[in-house]
């Protein structure tokens, strides 16, 4: 009897020893700042950072500080922070890819203080950088082509095109994010700087435009977004006709949408890329009008 209990004890000790070994070896602990908002961010950040027996991450949503504990023979701070950035969260070392950030849910759209373009926004600059902020492919252009004297409505158009592009990709997340930017852009328009013709149309469409853009921004259902986008495109078309365009804008028509009632959209390119169907029927549609 005694020997059995002894054996049991040995086994217990052994097991507990194994248990403690299963934890992170060569542990190193560090505290770093990771940008984020809410509980949902916490889950994403920690899940991205954790690696079984190698690294654990604990993030505090109030202080934005994360405690990294890792095996410094197997990994390093950079690897952990890179994984977290690839999940959408900026830190002092890495900036998340813009498309990943854009796909974070609304409550997680934290303020990206570390992005260089964001600084100009803080300084109360105009909105035109807003879209470049979130669209990396436009970044290169920003430095070269954009100038101070941009027509007031340009940002509105650019954001509209971004929404359209996102719908072409059938990406509800980005569509919604871009639509939110469109709302901001609409609000930022200084009406006094518009030409008389633009001003008249602007007064007519502004309310609908804002309402529709907000509607797209608030839903994550791509079908609903597309319904609203058809209305939004009508408003935009009115605006396009009176506003001066740097490059020709194409007014395109898809005859099949909405049970054959059809719908229109605007694009900077002549090639048909249908925002109502995306890849399901990308090339459905034709150019109705070229607005110069």
């Amino acid at each position: 009897m005694k020997s059995i209990s002894k054996i049991l004890m040995v086994i217990t000790v052994l097991l507990s020893a194994v248990n403690s070994f299963a934890q992170i070896k060569n542990a190193k602990t560090e505290t770093v700042k990771i940008y984020g908002n809410c509980e949902m961010c916490k889950t994403t950040i920690e899940k991205a950072g954790n690696l079984k027996n190698v690294a654990t991450v604990e993030w505090n949503k109030d202080t934005k500080m994360a405690t990294l504990k890792y095996d410094d023979k197997k990994t390093n701070q950079d690897e952990i922070l890179k994984r977290i950035a690839l999940a959408g969260y900026d830190s002092e070392k890495f900036l998340a890819p813009d498309d990943v950030y854009a796909k974070l849910s609304d409550c997680c759209q934290y303020k990206r203080e570390l992005k260089p373009v964001a600084k100009t926004k803080d300084a109360g600059m105009d909105m035109k950088n807003e879209h470049a902020n979130h669209n990396q492919s436009d970044m290169a252009q920003k430095n070269t082509t954009e100038t101070q004297n941009v027509p007031q409505l340009k940002t509105v158009f650019e954001n509209y095109f971004s929404v359209k592009d996102a719908l072409v990709k059938t990406d509800a997340g980005i569509s919604s994010a871009k639509a939110a930017e469109l709302v901001k852009a609409i609000k930022a328009v200084e009406m006094t700087k518009l030409s008389t013709k633009e001003h008249n149309v602007w007064m007519e469409v502004m309310k609908d435009l804002t309402a529709n853009a907000e509607k797209i921004a608030t839903t994550k259902d791509v079908a609903k977004q597309r319904e609203t986008f058809a209305l939004l495109s009508k408003n935009m078309y009115e605006l396009t006709k009176v506003s001066k365009q740097e490059a020709p804008v194409y007014y395109l028509h898809c005859p099949m949408y909405n049970n054959g009632k059809g719908a229109n959209w605007l694009s900077k390119e002549e090639v048909v890329k249908n925002p109502y169907y995306g890849s399901k029927m990308l090339t459905c549609g034709s150019v109705q009008e070229t607005i110069k």
């Binding site: 990709k169 059938t170 791509v222 079908a223 099949m256 049970n259 169907y277 995306g278 890849s279 399901k280 029927m281 990308l282 090339t283 459905c284």
Partner: peptide
């Protein structure tokens, strides 16, 4: 070409991608 879990959201169309030259 989109995520594999995205299903056709407009099934009423019988236009077929398989014939798209692009």
């Amino acid at each position: 070409t989109g995520d594999s879990n995205q299903k056709e959201d407009h099934s009423q169309h019988n236009m077929n991608m398989d014939n798209d030259p692009n």
